[in-house]
Design a protein around this nucleic acid. Sequence first.
RNA 1: GAUCCCAUCGUCUAGUGGCCUAGGACAUCGCCCUUUCACGGCGGUAACUCGGGUUCAAAUCCCGAUGGGAUCGCCA
Length: 481
Amino acid sequence: MEVRSRFAPSPTGYMHIGNLRTALYEYLVAKSAGGKFILRIEDTDQERYVEGAVDIIYKTMKMVGLKHDEGPDIGGNFGPYVQSERKAIYKKYADILVELGGAHYCFCSEEELENQRKKCEETGVPFKFDDPCKNISIEEAKKRISNGEKYTVRQTINPDGEVSFDDVVYGHVSVETKTLDEGILLKSDGLPTYNFANVVDDHLMNITHVLRGNEYLSSTPKYNLMYQAFGWDIPTYVHLPPIMKDEHNKLSKRNGDASFQDLVQKGYLPEAIVNYIVLLGWSAKNDQEIFSMEELEKVFNVEGINKSPAIFDIEKLKWMNGVYIRELPCEKFYKLSEPWMKQVIHKDIDFETLAKCIQPRVNVLNEIPEAIDFIEILPEYDTEMYIHKKMKTTVEISRTALLEAENLIKNMTDWSSIEAIHDAFMVMPEKLGLKNGQFLWPIRTALTGKQCTPTGAIEIAYLLGKEECLSRIQIGINKLG
RNA sequence: GAUCCCAUCGUCUAGUGGCCUAGGACAUCGCCCUUUCACGGCGGUAACUCGGGUUCAAAUCCCGAUGGGAUCGCCA
């Protein structure tokens, strides 16, 4: 049988990391088996609907390389793929489920429920809704409905029994039916709750593998009761552990944690983000950590999925992003880094060469502006910076180096390449009886005013241009008295 | 509270009874390379939650404790 998995986000306008990982695993489960990956929009909660949210979903999926085979935008044989357009379907199946004894019509108001709940709280009895409407016959209920009375459809659960199922990652899970809540399946607005829609849709869309967060682990038995009542095959369940912000808190929008979009905006590459999060709860069972999507489609398997929660570690993502950046072709990196460079540099310099210089030392694109801002304007710096133990520089040596450099540069005619400058500069240390560092460290300091720079004195001299170099060296000479 | 689930370095993980004096990666520390910082190379610190069993042998199996998480909505 063909494997079919689905990504079923609700359009909240925000693609958080946990959601994205679920989508990734769903995609990989299908693709690693040569199956189909379906996109379904779960918009049954009209109060949460956010304009434009669906576009964010399409955009994100495209950016990370998750191509769906069926969905609202491309169609398919099992549509519609938007739940709000499937209202009639849910109504039909809700009525069938009532006939089959798996559900009943309920006329209780939200206030009535609230009262029962309060009473339980007061008396200290654990709340479990006992629905008086269970005793209403179907005929009578239908009469009341045709009279225009508001109603919901509520699941009916026989308290004597046990339900169990086998989850691919959590193994055998078994519960007594008396502990299960008889939840609402069809709301009074006629739309289904997730609890009902997921069962109906997954069956009707021939979904074979259901992946979702493990918060659904405890309600899965209820879904299975419905599958059983309908006489439908139960799908393969793959429940996923949560991604945590820290030991106690889930990664979430409410905690102000970064979404996929936020990370991209900060300068993380989609490929790196995907690679990092696939490892949050899954392992290839070997030492490999860097995977392309093509590789993942081949090697991903559900056996590698972990049971316990994983904490999102931004430090490791940074490292991995750096790995991806270093692997980028120069031209590609230049294109990506250009806007970040131009954020702080408005002069006309050789940005392409600058890009080449910073590529090996940037992990996240948003590190670029601070790393190169000295090119635009020389920052204030302290004379202390000229004294460097390891380079064996002192104020005297620095002064000599700068004066000699000034002379040298004044007489230089070829400033067209790093090589030319390199050749001219590198004869000096020997001539002056200095080590390379003793000559070059003071120059780099005078040129940048910074402790750390993305590259050495020679490259920076080239980027700055002859005139600017002379003026900055003059400033350095003055500082050193 | 009830029910369900989870538990290896700071973090992500490998480990499915002997190959484990527990392996890899990030982070961290030290050294090397080097015109700084990085990159790269080499090395170090660092973990089986605890207590009982089972077994010749347990990180691995069983039981219990502890700790953590989830669910208990006309949200998904």
